[in-house]
């Protein structure tokens, strides 16, 4: 795509594409130093440097989903087995107590894992915003699943726009686009 095309539409969206990880990190750091926020970093892989600069070591809240799922699961396992067994106390093969924890522990364990995993999946979907078919165009770029990195603003305030563009270009972005009418070629096709 041509640079001219990118300059035509000026809007609140702006995106810089980077070919190098250190340049990208420089861009992110400069933006943070300038007090500009509200952008997303695009990358083909999870590099710990990006996650560190963006989230400063805070663990993802998905872990609470796992915990709630696990607790729900173990209780489900316990209640499912013991409450139903108490409803049919006559049916008691093997001569074990009606509510016998050693054998029920197996069911409780499996339910813990099952619910833990399913809740984690739900948490992942919620927090990642999946399925993200409606994601803003500026966050979509086929090169980012290949070997490029990017910084994208969904809604940059108009007064910051020029500063952002300057920072992106100073830190070595190989392409800067504004607006949401960009059309990408498919690489390697």
């Amino acid at each position: 795509m041509s640079a001219a095309h990118a300059e035509v539409a000026s809007g609140t969206r702006i995106k810089g594409i980077y070919a190098h990880l250190d340049c990208l990190l420089a861009g992110v750091e400069k933006l943070k130093e300038a007090g500009i926020s509200g952008f997303q970093v695009l990358s083909p892989l999870p590099r710990h440097e990006i996650l560190e600069v963006m989230y400063e070591g805070r663990p993802s809240p998905v872990r609470w989903w796992t915990l709630v799922g696990g607790v729900t699961g173990i209780n489900t396992g316990l209640l499912l087995t013991s409450l139903t067994a108490s409803q049919w106390p006559m049916i008691n093969p093997g001569g074990k107590p009606v509510v016998a924890l050693p054998p029920y522990a197996v069911i409780m364990f499996e339910c813990t894992i099952l619910f833990g995993a399913l809740f984690t999946l739900a948490g992942l979907i919620v927090h990642c915003g999946l399925p993200g078919f409606g994601l803003d165009k500026s966050l979509q770029d086929p090169r980012v699943s290949d070997d490029k990195f990017g910084i994208a603003f969904l809604r940059a305030s108009a007064k910051d726009l020029e500063r952002i563009a300057a920072i992106l270009s100073d830190t070595g972005a190989i392409e800067i686009t504004r607006g949401d009418d960009t059309i990408y070629e498919v690489p390697n096709a």
């Binding site: 997303q40 970093v41 695009l42 990358s43 083909p44 892989l45 999870p46 990006i50 996650l51 963006m54 989230y55 663990p59 993802s60 809240p61 998905v62 872990r63 796992t66 894992i113 833990g116 995993a117 984690t120 999946l121 948490g123 992942l124 927090h127 990642c128 915003g129 999946l130 399925p131 993200g132 078919f133 409606g134 994601l135 966050l139 979509q140 770029d141 980012v144 699943s145 994208a152």
Partner: peptide, 22 residues
């Protein structure tokens, strides 16, 4: 609709570790 945003990777890596731990 995966687009490799930092938010996606962040939660993805968190969740992946828990899937592994489970």
């Amino acid at each position: 609709g995966w687009h490799g945003t930092d938010r996606q990777w962040y939660h993805y890596m968190g969740a992946y570790g828990f899937f592994a731990a489970l």
